[in-house]
Write a protein that binds this DNA or RNA. Structure first.
Lengths: 126, 126
DNA sequence: ATAATATGCAAGTATTTGCTTACAAATATA
DNA sequence: TATATTTGTAAGCAAATACTTGCATATTAT
């Protein structure tokens, strides 16, 4: 059962993403988390273990209870990875926008009667 | 084999993340991608299928080749999800910083020689 | 037309995942 | 102390994953 254990893997599961959302604001103990889901406590326990193994969760023992606190900073790894591509896709969108605007400008120019030149010159589809 | 198929799942696999990185700048055909990896072409083909099924990849047929183009915008889903938490964790950091600064201020006030008081009072290492 | 190339699809396998039930251990409460 | 509560660990299982090898199909080049 020695598997790859990283943040990307951890957040791939929708239940685990829900757990993160559930405890993002304040630490919650295991049973309280489990009660929110249809699956067994043990199943949730395993999810918590996975979150914990990749550093997304810190479990603080408090008597017989365990308070689960999410370490949101760990998500920075994902943020950074996505961010590099966000730059690219927004860059592309900007470039596209610029291109479209440039085209508009050109076609306006083309449409506009050009000073001292017959319009007939530019009429075939190039 | 009808499985959950979403972006989070797709980027969970390191090979798929590598593929994304590989074709982020320009579309690449299947074999060229496969050549970069140790695993078989068929294995890569499956990864591409998964990426495609969740909308991260667009495959354009070009003769007998298939150009794989990544749809980076699809990563926005991940970006948004992480972003909401980034706000929280940076918020917490800001709050912490503010708290620490406030504490510093307080302790300086306490340490600070009161007007008209000899400087000698502050000479120990604090 | 024939051979080479690019790729998909199918079958088979080992590993991992997500879950369940059953049992054990530690702590709190009556 | 006896009992209830909170949680972990272990065993078992079905489904999904990540691969592999082998074969089929469409294009392109000779």
């Amino acid at each position: 059962m020695e598997a790859r254990r990283d943040v990307f893997q951890a957040i791939a599961d929708p239940t685990r993403r829900e757990i993160i959302g559930m405890i993002a604001r304040q630490p919650v103990n295991v049973n309280t988390i489990a009660d929110q889901f249809d699956v067994s406590r043990q199943a949730i326990s395993l999810h918590l273990k996975i979150l914990s193994e990749c550093g997304l969760l810190h479990i603080k023992q408090s008597g017989r209870e365990r308070l689960c606190e999410v370490k949101l900073e760990k998500l920075n790894e994902v943020h950074e990875w996505v961010q590099q591509y966000k730059k690219m896709w927004t860059g592309k969108l900007k470039a596209l926008k610029a291109f479209v605007e440039q085209e508009e400008l050109q076609s306006k120019k083309a449409d506009a009667p050009i000073k001292k030149q017959s319009k007939k010159i530019r009429n075939g589809k190039s």
